[in-house]
Amino acid sequence: MAAAEDTSAETVVNADGGLGRDAGRDAGRDAGRDDLPLSRQVCDELVHVATCGSTNDLARRLYPSLGSLPMSAGFGDAADGWRGRPWRGVGRVPVCLVVADEQTQGRGRLGRSWQSGAGDSLTASFVLALPASLMRGSDSGLLTLAAGLAVLDALRDVVVGAGGLGVAGDLGVAGGLGVAGNAGGAAHAVDGAGTAVAASPAQLLGLKWPNDVYLAGRKLAGILSEVAFSDADDVGVVVGVGANLLVVADRLPTPLSTSLQLHFDGLPPFAELRDRLCAGIARGLRRQMGALAFGGETARDELVSRVNVENVLRGHPVTVNLAAGHRVEGVAGDVRADGSLEVLPADGNGSSSDGSSGDGSWPVRVTAGDVLLRRDCAAPSTR
Rank of each mutant, 00 (worst) to 15 (best):
R25F: 12
C52D: 02
Q103K: 03
P86W: 02
W82D: 13
S72Q: 12
R92A: 12
A31H: 15
V93I: 15
W82R: 15
G141I: 01
V90L: 13
L62N: 03
F126R: 12
V47L: 07
A146D: 03
R92G: 01
R85M: 09
Q41R: 15
L36W: 14
S140M: 08
A147Q: 01
R33I: 14
A59L: 05
L38S: 11
G28Y: 07
R85H: 08
S65L: 09
S54F: 05
M135W: 12
W87Q: 07
L134T: 02
L36T: 12
R112S: 03
R25V: 15
C96A: 14
L46Q: 07
R61S: 10
L97M: 03
L143H: 05
V90P: 00
T144P: 03
L38Q: 15
R61H: 11
R92E: 11
V98G: 02
A132Q: 13
P86I: 01
R112T: 07
E45I: 06
R60I: 13
A31Q: 13
S65C: 04
S72W: 05
A118Y: 01
D26K: 15
G89N: 04
P70R: 11
S72R: 15
V90Y: 11
T123M: 14
C43V: 15
W82L: 11
L149V: 12
A31V: 15
W87C: 02
A124K: 12
V127P: 00
A50C: 01
R85I: 07
A50H: 06
G76M: 00
L58C: 02
L69M: 04
L110K: 10
L149C: 06
L128Y: 09
L142S: 02
P94W: 13
L36E: 07
G137L: 01
P131Q: 13
G111I: 09
P86V: 00
N56P: 00
S65G: 05
D139P: 03
L46N: 03
D30V: 14
V127Y: 11
R25W: 13
A147N: 01
G81D: 08
A31I: 12
R33W: 15
R136F: 01
R112Q: 03
V95M: 05
R136M: 06
V99Y: 01
Q41M: 10
L36Y: 15
C96S: 14
M135H: 08
D139E: 13
S116D: 06
G53P: 00
V90D: 07
G137T: 01
S116K: 10
R136C: 00
A78E: 09
P37R: 14
S68C: 09
L97Y: 00
L130S: 02
V90Q: 13
L149Y: 00
D35P: 08
G67F: 09
L66A: 00
D35Q: 11
L130Y: 10
R107D: 06
A59D: 05
Q115H: 15
G141L: 03
C96Q: 03
A129S: 11
S133V: 12
A100P: 00
D77V: 09
S138D: 11
S125P: 00
G148W: 05
Q105S: 13
S39Q: 03
